[in-house]
């Protein structure tokens, strides 16, 4: 997916300012930044759900993983997946639910699941939905550390099996450094840094990943 000269304004406020970005196919990119840096706006532009000035090219079909699982409370776990999937794909639901650790919970309603299980359903939905690019909007931000570790590992292993392009926004430096090939740092609507790490993710969640110190330094620098 390629963005050329993408600018997005909300009235007088510039959310994104002339962004040029080329995302590598089959890799995981993190968009890191503080609140109001333009992360979610960039995700909206990548998704094609926001109007903007500039050009956007490629990316194919897009799937989503939201911060809140957004499961319909009236539908079972299986029903929630059926809701978004084309009928011919319903056969793959059982396998995917087993893959994310929800075997035997197909007929349960969301209210009877834990927060982590609900996010697993959302992960199953995001990976099963036909797509070439997966966009994730702060998918682990509301989870405790143990759950975050487990779900980061799950997303990374599903990516290894499938190899789609993943873009996720986060304000968590550690999460970005563990899960991404490349970290794009946004500050006030502009790309402040674009760093890549060697090797495939995930990196050791309980160690200090190579990019983390650099990213903290960049985020701490005041913008001139």
């Amino acid at each position: 997916m390629i963005l050329r000269g993408v600018t997005k304004k909300y009235g007088e406020t510039v959310a994104l300012n002339a962004i040029d970005l080329a995302l590598e196919e089959g890799k995981i990119a993190a968009v890191l930044g503080e609140s109001g840096a333009g992360k979610s706006t960039l995700l909206g532009v990548l998704a094609g759900t926001l109007p903007f000035e500039g050009e956007r090219e490629g990316g194919g079909r897009v799937s989503y993983l939201f911060q809140d699982p957004k499961l319909l409370p009236n539908l079972t776990v299986e029903g929630n997946l059926r809701f978004v999937l084309p009928k011919p794909m319903w056969g793959g639901i059982g396998g995917m639910l087993a893959r994310v650790g929800l075997a035997g919970k197909e007929k349960r309603l969301p209210r009877s699941l834990s927060g982590g299980e609900r996010q697993r359903v959302a992960i199953a939905r995001a990976f099963l939905y036909p797509h070439e690019t997966l966009l994730m909007d702060e998918p682990f931000s509301s989870l405790d550390l143990a759950l975050k570790h487990s779900l980061v590992g799950l997303v990374a292993s599903l990516w290894r099996e499938r190899g789609e392009t993943i873009v996720f926004v986060t304000h968590d430096v550690h999460e970005a450094a563990v899960l991404a090939h490349r970290v794009i740092v946004l500050k006030r609507g502009e790309i402040a840094a674009d760093l890549s790490a060697e090797g495939d993710p995930p990196r050791d969640f309980f160690a200090r990943p190579p990019l983390e110190d650099d990213l903290i330094r960049i985020l701490a620098q005041p913008k001139p």
């Binding site: 799937s63 957004k70 319909l72 809701f83």
Partner: peptide, 23 residues
């Protein structure tokens, strides 16, 4: 839930039947 349904391009009939009416 509208944003989620739009993101996954869920058809109007399915949205009405499984999302809007029951909720």
């Amino acid at each position: 839930y509208g944003g989620m349904a739009r993101a996954f391009k869920v058809g109007a009939g399915r949205r009405a039947l499984w999302m809007y009416f029951p909720l």
